[in-house]
Design a binder for these strands. Structure first.
Lengths: 163, 163
DNA sequence: GTTGAAAACAAGCACAC
DNA sequence: GTGTGCTTGTTTTCAAC
């Protein structure tokens, strides 16, 4: 009942507290982390290493500000395909993720097939991405470009799991 | 002509190489970074600090694997509004970003108003998010939920700026 | 699974170029 | 704007619990 291994994923209370602290404030020292959680530094470092090797911590990302790089315009491009061959879809996906300015790509079910989030310098660059990198693929039937007014990060997955 | 300050954003060649190295492999020591780029450690640390304070480096994120946390289902929920009052839109945006499981939210122009990327445990949880956190808002007219088959990170903004 | 302590390592700072 | 040397702090390791 008072088992600290409460989570379905085999994460105990300390694991979850470590994850929460790391997500809230990444880049702090292991020493500071251990102090806040009230455990030894070696324990904290050990748990973090374990969480990494288990894949719970998928990685660390350095986030750049597209606007500061001269790319003030963001858009989500909805891509709809005609023929859905496995090779065609795979090739398009590969191509999209390698296109300069593409931040992320979703392969989704439903009306659309791909959602492509891009950052570009201006409207002309946006048009060029659509014409030169997306609609050139034979499998693509239509695209719809939606300007992004604002993008916010959510509270995230951990909030669904935490006590 | 051979001005190393080639970028429009006032970033010189070293800045760009630092950013590229950081994005490719975050979390490495300043010492290792400086060694790879062939500059002094102090120079490297100084530049990184400058890039941070200028906001070019927006921050660092710890990325968790939703599936490893017991949230194997991801979806993008397209949200369309009825009345578009400034307060209604703002309140919905605030509410969405605080909803457990929400990874990111886009406020977009066009047919849809919001795109909400979520990770959940199962279909029932997905339904509950839509019913309890989205359609409860008076401003929301319709939603469409798209299952995410796969999500990939793109090569990113830097690839548009790099030589 | 957890700990403290020692040894190896990296970061930050002031200063010289 | 860049390199150097010293001081401080942090990560790693490991025997022991």
């Amino acid at each position: 009942m008072s088992d600290p291994q409460a989570s379905p994923s085999g994460l105990d209370d300390l694991d979850l507290r470590i994850l929460a602290a790391l997500v809230r404030q990444p880049g702090r020292s292991n020493k500071a982390l251990a102090a806040e959680l009230g455990v030894a530094e070696s324990t904290c470092a050990y748990r973090v290493r374990l969480l990494r090797s288990r894949g719970v911590i998928a990685g660390v990302r350095v986030v750049l500000d597209p606007a500061a790089l001269g790319l003030p315009l963001q858009a989500v491009i909805r891509v709809r395909l005609g023929r859905h061959t496995r090779e065609g879809v795979g090739r398009l996906f590969d191509s999209l993720e390698r296109t300069p300015g593409v931040i992320e790509v979703f392969h989704v079910a439903g009306e659309d097939d791909f959602l492509v989030h891009v950052a570009v310098e201006d409207a002309a660059a946006l048009r060029d991405i659509v014409l030169q990198h997306i609609t050139v693929h034979e499998t693509v039937r239509t695209t719809e470009t939606h300007l992004v007014f604002e993008r916010r990060e959510g509270i995230g997955p951990l909030a669904r799991v935490m006590p």
